[in-house]
Design a protein around this nucleic acid. Sequence first.
DNA 1: TAACTTTATGACAGCGCTGGTCATTTTGTA
DNA 2: TACAAAATGACCAGCGCTGTCATAAAGTTA
Lengths: 342, 342
Amino acid sequence: MKVTIHDVAAKAGVSIKTVSRVMNNEPSVKPATVDKVNQAVQELNYQPNAAARNLASTKSYSIGYIYDNPNAYYVIDMQRGLLDACRKHGYELLIHPTNAKSPGIVQEVIDLVRHSRLAGLVLTPPFSEMPEIAEALSSINVDFVRIISGSTPSPKQTNCVLVDDFTAAFKITNHLLELGHSQIAFLCGDEEHSSSGERLAGFKAALTKRGIDANPKFIVPGSYSFESGVKGATQLLAQPNKPTAIFACNDEIAAGALFSARLQHIEIPQQLSIVGFENSPFSRQTWPPLTTAHQPNTTIAQSAAELLFKQTRPGSRSQTEDQPVFIPELLVRESTGVAQQK
Amino acid sequence: MKVTIHDVAAKAGVSIKTVSRVMNNEPSVKPATVDKVNQAVQELNYQPNAAARNLASTKSYSIGYIYDNPNAYYVIDMQRGLLDACRKHGYELLIHPTNAKSPGIVQEVIDLVRHSRLAGLVLTPPFSEMPEIAEALSSINVDFVRIISGSTPSPKQTNCVLVDDFTAAFKITNHLLELGHSQIAFLCGDEEHSSSGERLAGFKAALTKRGIDANPKFIVPGSYSFESGVKGATQLLAQPNKPTAIFACNDEIAAGALFSARLQHIEIPQQLSIVGFENSPFSRQTWPPLTTAHQPNTTIAQSAAELLFKQTRPGSRSQTEDQPVFIPELLVRESTGVAQQK
DNA sequence: TAACTTTATGACAGCGCTGGTCATTTTGTA
DNA sequence: TACAAAATGACCAGCGCTGTCATAAAGTTA
């Protein structure tokens, strides 16, 4: 019922020390022994007692997830992925909701790490994009992994999981181009979020490749909100020269755009195509459902946690020094259609 | 920097055991000693090490929060409240996302409690409404607190935090009645959720009090989703005898109803009033913003955690034996207006 | 004031694990 | 076959705290 390291040792016919070695990926254990132990672990469903490990070890066995994201769905997904990875490795996850804009945020993070003796931290936007946090953590020698928007792994930032918004946006734009659209507008998200810039860049690149110049009037600044989508789309659709498609920087903006179009009795997708980004739950609930880009947040989170564990326990085997890149995947639904003939 | 119980003991001039007693509100410590220790704790900014406590104690210093709620906003709010309470009492929070409908769910919960040695559990719907879970937890002697829909504290269930959906629904309905509406329809949520039944009951009670009979055709079964709202409202508005107001069982349904009305060029609130329930973030983002009932989820969660701590540590002083009841508060926004003259 | 009960406090073991040291066994290599 | 190298075990201390039980201080009674 309560499985301890002793039970595993007995079952595998080795000493507890060896079990400990296996659990911690320490070197100089024969592969055959590793297998034996792992099998016993499996059969007994052994999970190391995190409290005991934390207490005994100078290193710690818990990682932290700091969040301040109005997007609850994103947080929940991330959490789940982190939790999965933690469970697998016998780590604990400490969640810490906070306010990214609070002036004492850096100190708060440091205190958290110190007090809870965290092995490391997973940072998502906006924290992953705050250089002062990264510097502070480095200076006190705490490992962390950042989930950021980007396409090209750089040797400098080995501790990053990249979400390739650029390529995803490129693909989405291509989808619209293939449907015959050439008058495509872009509704931006918050400027501070690099994801918005990356997506815009991917959008522009796809147009350029087709020899189309992005119409500056069709690029509307805004923020990641429904209201911003309503406002942006209303503005666009009031122009004499209307776009035939709108690329919204995320699903909320797209929902706003959808709403605005509906108000003006514009048929979707017959008269206007709209795409979103993120594949949030409500992108399926709009009418028509949104074409969007799916971000596998749970998987991304898992991968971030794995990367963190590798850093934290350099002794571990399978040292594939990789920097994961995730490309959100195009998800075609009913909000996009063939471009209207002029 | 790393303050332990020994430091506090030295500073206060007592043994570590006494410090431990004070930290746990154990009886039979002289008030003067308590003060001495507390002062030392304050001066050193001592916080007990949760890992060590968990390891040493048969009881544990962490509580669990099991969730399977598609409503991410709800989960995030609950989490925050639980976290606040935990921090205050030096507890840890263990979150466990799972699938409530999985056949092995009861065993899973038991395993979780056993393995992580939880002091107790906070249950929200749907878990709080599953008798088999409550029974299983009772049988293995694990404390838990349920957050459930209800209005009258009962001596039987001392371990409940009540959310008085009945009264809140009553008030919302009154709001509509006061605006002159008499033809009010009700869009139900999932039947399994008792909240839907409670809200309906409150709705009916308010009508009855005004001498109005609820029109059975105006009570539409459904589920807590946008689609359900679209469907229900479409059905209602297709009838020759249309309601002048719709009470949606939650904001998502209300958003769906709003959407349906908009499709049919029905002006809100001039031609039709719509109310939601929950005050979820997007109830502010619809157009017009929804009149709704605000549920203080974070506060509710805090109170649930406090109640749990009291159960877990019966030794503690200030034993106010209360059963908190929260009444969601009417929040009037722009989706409701004076009833149209016929 | 002695004898006894109650209350307050302390000494000590041990929770489950890791880290270190050293001895012993097994394996690989010349 | 001899010897070095790798793999494993035995053992101990200790992480910071609580539980148990023994002991000291205070309060009560006759």
